[in-house]
Design a protein around this nucleic acid. Structure first.
Lengths: 295, 295
DNA sequence: TACTCGTTATAGAAGGTGTCTATATGGTGA
DNA sequence: TCACCATATAGACACCTTCTATAACGAGTA
């Protein structure tokens, strides 16, 4: 099989009808082009050009070759354009999987600013539970997963994002819980509002109580963090949420943090990717945003 | 623009999913492939493959590149196949222009044997007068022209074929002309059958007479050599034809050569091609047949 | 756990090949 | 006939491709 580079020289020579012009386009000298064309002709065993005093002209066989090589050249040009777009973020796609509430409360601002910066990069957001996200990642359905740590899987590469701290919150109705220290046991006297049972934050808080010999049974079980917040505000009881995600409500007095007499371990946002699969340019740019402390 | 040869390595690597396998297909070593791929990645500024312990796998960007390069590769493969066909004469086309009677009486046997030998080479036969043939040749409508010499045109390359000798023939009715020397003047007493006035053989014979101060005026003017022969046989008069093309008739006694008291210069078949345009493989094979003394 | 077998990566050396400069050759048009 | 534009050729040199040898690494297996 012929050295493909010779076809590039052939194409440009045929296109311009001149060895000298082709040489200029290739930033090499005319004798070099002459040599390449001769080499190609010798290799193929066919004369491709008729040399005239005005340049060169394709022979029958040369014209046949050209009709094919032209196509090939166009595809390669297109490929290089496309890749250049991918490098410049003037095209591309990122598929992100966000677990639970992280999608809305953590990811959304990043997505917005990234989209403003690179409007041609298509963003594809999937949400689901942590195991679902991991599964999607392993199946190649998403490029990046955003989950709560800890997460342990040796197929995954973990980058740590910001630290988050869960807490119990309640509305003005049970405001007293924010004033004095409240033990876990005492808290059980209040109506508890929790996330649905398969979530990792639910498991986390359940274990927190069970480690202290207590059984946590929610009064109300909800499917979204927004509802958890809303119900707590309205006075249905005490919700377990991420403090950073209710910062506004805590500040404007619509929610109060329960002054719990226990240490709720803080956790970190985990940015997970497949260990062996390099990130696309767009995806790694996005991950860099997530990791950069500036944002 | 990237060295096209790297795309060949890329394609085979992506296709086989392995640097080592690609190396085998390319008859080079694995480190060489590794180096080429890295060079390509560096040049493009993108990672194209994820390296695993089982081989390599395309990244997102690699897959994008592959979708284009695959097309390009296929076109190049097709091109090489097609050229190989042209070399083997398992495809191709020759366009031949034959002037006057040469088509049938001279060219036909060559065409037949060539067609038997290379059945996939398409033969395209055009006939016309010598000037028409020359025009077609210069316009690229035919590859080869077959005419009578002399022909002088510095854009044309002339190869000489067999020598032919014109002569006057007649049927049994005027058989006496073949017995004793007949002068040109005396011949004019007989009805003369000639080819139409724009043909080169007509001009040739007219000049032969005028050089001897005689005016040649045909009784009958015909458009084909076959008819010239037929009319002479039947007894309409004396035809001027190429001796080689009536060899059979002279042998079986249906025609007799006039024993003319003048030297009719012999001429040669001329195989003309454009000086600057190399012949296609098929065409030059055909020319070789015409030139080979064996046939 | 260690060993083997497969993969890719790396380093350094050597050869080949592409490119250069200089010059020849040849046709075209003034 | 000459100048100018092409391409062709020759020989030298540098770069780049390829090689060998070896490392590193992961997966499967005893």
């Amino acid at each position: 099989m012929v050295n493909f580079e010779l076809y590039k020289v052939f194409y440009l020579t045929a296109k311009s009808g001149s060895l000298s012009k082709a040489a200029k386009e290739l930033y090499i000298t005319q004798p070099s082009v002459s040599h390449s064309i001769k080499l190609l002709e010798d290799t193929l065993g066919l004369q491709l050009f008729a040399r005239t005093s005005k340049g060169v002209e394709l022979t029958k066989e040369g014209a046949v070759l050209f009709s094919y090589i032209e196509q090939a050249y166009n595809f390669i040009s297109l490929a290089e354009e496309k890749l250049s777009e991918l490098r410049n973020f003037s095209s591309g796609e990122i598929k992100i999987g966000g677990s639970d509430s992280l999608c809305k409360h953590y990811l959304l601002p990043f997505l917005e600013s990234f989209h403003v910066q690179y409007p041609h990069v298509q963003i594809n957001l999937v949400h689901g539970t942590t195991p679902e996200i991991v599964k999607h990642l392993k199946e190649g359905k998403i490029d990046i997963g955003i989950v709560r740590t800890p997460i342990l899987d040796d197929q995954l590469q973990l980058r740590e994002g910001i630290t988050i701290q869960d807490c119990f919150v309640t509305g003005p109705k049970y405001r007293e819980l924010s004033l004095e220290k409240v033990s876990l046991a005492k808290l059980l006297a209040y109506p508890i509002i929790l996330f649905s049972s398969n979530s990792s934050s639910r498991k986390f808080v359940t274990r927190l109580f069970s480690e202290n010999g207590l059984l946590l049974e929610p009064e109300i079980e909800l499917g979204s963090v927004d509802l958890l917040i809303e119900f707590a505000k309205t006075g249905f009881g005490v919700s377990f949420v991420t403090k950073e995600f209710v910062a506004k409500e805590l500040a404007d007095g619509s929610l109060f943090e329960v002054n719990i007499d226990a240490t709720i371990p803080s956790t970190k946002i985990g940015i997970i990717t497949l260990k062996n699969m390099p990130l696309s340019t767009a995806a790694s740019a996005f991950v860099a945003e997530l990791e950069s402390p500036g944002s």
